[in-house]
Nucleic acid binder design. Structure first.
Lengths: 294, 294
DNA sequence: CGGCAAACTGAAAACGTTTTCAAGTAAATC
DNA sequence: GATTTACTTGAAAACGTTTTCAGTTTGCCG
């Protein structure tokens, strides 16, 4: 019998099944750039639990471009994906409209929407940053810089920067916007930041992306500034890059793989019309001291 | 009025179209691990030209596990993908059988099959390694180690190791298998290799993976061995990691993004039944001297 | 103006499954 | 043993498009 099947080389046609059953067992994944370790880690977590639940993922890079995001969202929906996990931190009104327009379940992974329109999986970014910046201040840093990605992204402006401000406030240090550096989250930009950082007399930096932080550290080293003795840096994503550079980078730790995995698990429940108790889950974060801080 | 707009809010059903037209405008991508920068770079190239040609990609991680590869290949085929780009370097006979069984176009990206069964896009690994090892030898290294991933993978055993042997041969140096280290291509393994490397009196290493190489370099530094003065290392993939570690790693340069892009472009031709002149394309490689070599 | 090919049109078939539904059969209840 | 209930079976409908094909119109040429 199996021989016959082998001979006939029969494969069930999932497309026909999809048409008939209105389920494709495929989910869409929208990600700014797989090439960034932060996102590839999430993506890996997503794919693993997706296959665990017999789903496949259609992976698309959006370059965090709002237009591309909308476009790709619609092609995914027209491909009848059963659900979507979205990564990207600038949820524009237009995008939110698109989100509302469909009844296909969508969950955000490692991405915040200030309006909490959709279920999401994150860590408590403000608490984490606040805690790290407090530590920096307690260690004697009077002027700690905040180096982040685009402030249009709520995760930076509404969360991380808030944590930074809170830490400042409870330490009685006035907020100085000369100390916040808005960047594009790339390694190269980081390497160029040393002069600017020095010119404002910063002695430490809270950085929101590992590649960016690596750039800053190397820029410092190349300019003869010793990390952490003369300049401390803390990064945010705890990708494996933190262990690869020297000195190793202290970081907020996030369960990257798990964020993806939990997001996907959450999505399976939604696709299955199961009840979910907590729509916006916060996973525990930690603080990992390595060599870039005193 | 809103009803009308809502009514007009029509999305063509790609699944129905797929059934009727026998084209899904979706291609499968099988990759060992997106989390590895080498593969995520290829994947990015693939996705970009895929969207350029109106395709989407179903991305699956195989962990380079032969069984998973076969399994996932079949689910992709049952999902009626129009084509597949495969990454992974151990093409087993069983996998080859599966490849033969289907008439869906398949191309290999950054992955060699010694039998050249399927179209592929690569660089000339043997020439590249040979050249770099020759340079190492010319610079006075009598004992250069070859540190690679699993030798079951043809890319390592049949290509890179061959290049290594050739370089040795033309320099009149006898091949010593104590100098070849078969590993699992991970950073962590690299960090542990220093004692073994020292014990065989190696003064340089040709490494086949960037993360692995970074591990080796850091292991050396941590043990007080100066790179490149006391130990030179050359790596193979030229991911952005090479620029991030200190010292920066000298590397064979490969157009990673382009390998993916060209592979996908090739696939579009095959899916379109166009003639392709060269089934096994070799893209140009280069040698980038950075700081991990003298 | 006749004849023929080309272009257009609309309805029906096809795509390969799942879902539905009706009819039939077996089991269970009294 | 009759009546209901539950289960089984097989055929038909449905899924939402593209493809096909016959029929009709248009266009062109002699």
């Amino acid at each position: 019998m199996l021989d016959v099947i082998e001979k006939l080389d029969y494969r069930p046609n999932a497309v026909a099944r999809g048409l008939a059953s209105k389920k494709t067992t495929t989910v869409g994944v929208i990600v700014p750039d797989v090439t960034n370790m932060y996102f590839s880690s999430l993506a890996r977590g997503i794919d693993d639990v997706a296959t665990m639940y017999k789903y496949n993922i259609i992976l698309t890079n959006s370059d965090a471009d709002s237009e591309k995001e909308i476009k790709v969202l619609n092609t995914l929906l027209s491909k009848q994906v059963d659900g979507i996990v979205f990564m990207g931190n600038e949820i524009t009104d237009k995008l939110r409209e698109e989100f509302k327009r469909t009844k296909t379940p969508i969950v955000l992974a490692g991405s915040v929407d200030e309006q909490n329109l959709k279920p999401s999986v994150n860590i408590d970014y403000v608490a984490a940053v606040q805690e790290e910046v407090k530590n920096l201040i307690d260690r004697g840093n009077k002027r700690v810089a905040f180096v982040c990605g685009p402030l249009e992204q709520a995760i930076n402006s509404k969360f991380r920067l808030e944590g930074y401000k809170k830490a400042l406030k409870s330490a009685g240090i006035p907020y100085d916007d000369k100390l916040v550096f808005e960047t594009d989250d790339t390694y190269k930009t980081g390497t160029l930041l040393q002069p600017a950082l020095m010119s404002v007399n910063a002695t430490a930096a809270m950085v929101t992306d590992d590649e960016l932080a690596a750039g800053i550290m190397n820029g410092m080293s190349d300019a003869g500034v010793k990390v952490p003795d003369q300049f401390e840096v803390i990064t945010s994503n705890d990708t494996k890059l933190t262990e690869m550079v020297r000195p190793k980078m202290s970081s907020i730790t996030q369960p990257l793989y798990d964020i993806g995995a939990v997001a996907m698990r959450l999505l399976t429940k939604l696709m299955n019309n199961e009840e979910v108790d907590e729509k916006n889950v916060l996973l525990p974060y930690g603080l990992m001291k390595r060599e870039s801080t005193k």
